[in-house]
């Protein structure tokens, strides 16, 4: 559905100085039709620019962007505006028109797309029903709560029945309860309307609950990408690692590890939990075989795409040689705090 081919975006910086700021650095991505694609990274990693390259709000310095087969770089400004009408966009700060009612906001993109006043109002009312705000059509944005405003933002983005929805930190300005509601709405958008969603976020939980695929960005580059479970269960890059940890809180580190060491005299090892039953049996068989006892010292397990993911830190007690043998046999076992 969306294809980025070796896309780079450099912003000119100051006067004279060569180079400039490379916000997006040779990124290639493929977003399959109907998927929910998450782009994560710290602020300043280039996510926001990357998202704006997709609908050409930012023009790439090099490389090409294809949406639904159309090469946006090859189109003129007029053609690009046409394509933008089939790409919805949702913003962190909602960016609603304060001078227009809820209905007026949702009807606006339809008017841009050339619909008559009556058509626009009818379709806008229909979309407002979908997001559950049909009773608020005549109100103004400032009369709504944050969650309601974002639902208006989503309704507005959906008005023209786009094939793609771009979400720029759509839940970052919302409290956890409201975030949950908005994510549930986005899931319906994907499932019931079949709309491909690309979202950028710095909240791992958003990716965990919504996305099929994920790309991790650092310094303008995509450092890792793939299925959400695959990327999260085997993080390769420090940024990915940090994000996974922030979502699962499963591995004790720093002071927490020191406290564990003070409490537990035995050897601490961290075992990944992946919902793979065989691994668990193997561990318990090994411990029995070598007469090693264990106590759970720390654990953090969450669900990613309906599969458990996380780790357990165990304190092992027994003969040194036996513990060594257990650790050696299970390649998956790791020293606590090693990662």
């Amino acid at each position: 559905m969306i294809e980025l081919r070796d896309v780079t975006k450099t912003f000119p910086q100051g006067k004279g100085e060569g180079g400039g700021l490379r916000a997006v650095d040779h990124v290639s991505l493929h977003v399959p039709r109907g998927s929910v694609y998450g782009i994560v990274g710290h602020s300043g990693a280039g996510k926001s620019t990357l998202l704006r390259l997709i609908n050409h709000l930012e023009e790439p310095t090099s490389g090409s962007v294809l949406v639904g087969g159309a090469d946006l770089g090859a189109l003129g400004e007029r053609g690009r505006r046409q394509v933008r009408q089939s790409i919805g966009m949702v913003f962190q700060q909602f960016n609603l028109f304060r001078s227009r009612t809820v209905l007026g906001n949702v009807a606006y993109p339809l008017k841009v797309a050339g619909a008559s006043r009556a058509e626009a109002r009818e379709r806008a009312a229909e979309v407002l029903r979908f997001v559950g705000l049909d009773g608020h059509a005549r109100r103004y944005p400032e009369q709504l709560s944050g969650g309601q405003r974002q639902r208006v933002g989503i309704a507005r983005a959906l008005a023209t029945s786009p094939g793609v929805l771009l979400c720029d930190e759509a839940t970052s300005a919302l409290d956890p309860q409201t975030t949950h509601e908005v994510l549930a709405l986005l899931e319906r958008v994907n499932r019931e309307l079949g709309i491909t969603i690309v979202l950028i976020t710095h909240e791992m939980d958003v990716v965990r609950s919504l996305c099929d695929r994920v790309a991790v960005m650092a310094d303008g580059k995509v450092v890792e990408s793939g299925g959400v479970y695959e990327v999260f269960s085997r993080p390769q890059h420090p940024t990915t690692e940090a994000f996974v940890r922030s979502a699962l809180h499963d591995r004790p580190d720093g002071p927490a590890l020191e406290r564990l060491r003070a409490r537990h005299g035995g050897r601490l090892v961290t075992v990944p939990v992946t919902g793979d039953a065989a691994g668990g049996h193997e561990l318990s068989r090994l411990l029995r075989e070598h007469a090693v006892d264990f106590t759970v010292a720390h654990a953090g397990v969450g669900e990613v795409q309906n599969r458990p993911l996380g780790s357990v830190t165990l304190e092992l007690r027994g003969a040194e040689a036996d513990i060594d043998a257990v650790v050696a046999r299970l390649g998956g076992l790791e020293k606590a705090g090693a990662r």
Binding site: I87, F91, S99, R100
Partner: peptide
């Protein structure tokens, strides 16, 4: 600026943005 960006993302032309977004806002 976010409001202008939203209108651009909808495919509105510069003239339309000025007349139907900036002036009313």
């Amino acid at each position: 600026p976010g409001v202008v960006e939203a209108a651009r993302a909808m495919g509105a032309s510069p003239l339309r943005i000025v007349l139907t977004v900036l002036v009313p806002e």
